[in-house]
């Protein structure tokens, strides 16, 4: 089915809230999924799988040594966002090393949004395979680089964007297609953020009557 970017953003945001993520996380994940969808990735399916599997336990301890931050089994929605924040705060010389990353493509989405917001470029290197990718606001040079992220150790660096990397692509507004079953699952999750209606809330919650024949 065809959906708008705004629908994706808010449905993912609410679905993220429904599983217990904080408001800022939910907002960032919504933006990441829109970014993925606008770059031809099935962001909603990725998000649906992530939301079904993510636990919202407190963040794992992240070890920091000099300019390096190390994370094992990070969840992009929780430690991943924190790591990106840290990297943005330590451009040029900061490096994040992650192993056993769940939902690698979602991480790419979060990096893509951050690249746009901070006018930055992220460089991903996967150990042992000589795989590299760059994530800019306009896309990723290798979308499959984190497809096996559970079994990989990757390092992530960040530097300021320049030249073509610093130019956004405002015409990238194709219709966005989502599988109906995926959308229904996401919508069902989002629905959990709504408060059941009662006669009292119906009458007093909006401060308005029920008939306007005047």
């Amino acid at each position: 089915m065809m959906v708008s970017a705004n629908e994706i953003h808010h449905t993912i945001r609410k679905a993220s809230l429904a599983i217990g993520l904080d408001h800022d996380r939910a907002t960032d994940i919504g933006a990441a999924v829109v970014w993925l969808a606008r770059h031809g990735q099935d962001g909603c399916a990725i998000a649906e799988a992530m939301l079904a599997a993510t636990d919202t336990a407190p963040p794992l301890v992240m070890t920091k040594a000099k300019d390096q931050l190390k994370l094992s089994s990070p969840r992009p929605a929780i430690e991943g966002i924190a790591a990106i924040d840290w990297l943005i705060a330590n451009p040029d010389d900061g490096c994040v090393v992650m192993s056993d990353v769940s939902d690698g493509v979602l991480l790419l989405g979060l990096l893509g949004v951050a690249a746009g917001q901070y006018n930055s470029v992220f460089q991903i290197s996967v150990d042992g395979k000589n795989h590299k990718a760059r994530v800019t606001m306009t896309g990723c040079t290798n979308w499959t680089i984190l497809s096996d992220s559970r079994n990989q150790t990757m390092s992530l660096t960040c530097f300021p964007a320049s030249g073509e990397d610093a130019i956004s692509n405002p015409d990238h507004y194709d219709d966005l297609i989502v599988a109906k079953d995926v959308w229904e699952k996401l919508a069902a999750l989002a629905y959990k953020t709504y408060v059941p209606s009662s006669e009292q809330s119906r009458l007093s919650g909006a401060g308005a009557g029920l008939n306007d024949n005047d």
Binding site: T193, V195, S197, S201, A206
Partner: peptide, 26 residues
């Protein structure tokens, strides 16, 4: 502040009298 499941109407509830505060807008 919350969104009601009834056509997603935004509503205002009394925190200490009505259910739903765990779903409040921030």
């Amino acid at each position: 502040w919350y969104t009601s499941e009834e056509k997603l109407e935004p509503r205002l509830g009394r925190r200490y009298e009505e259910p739903g505060q765990e779903l409040e807008m921030p």
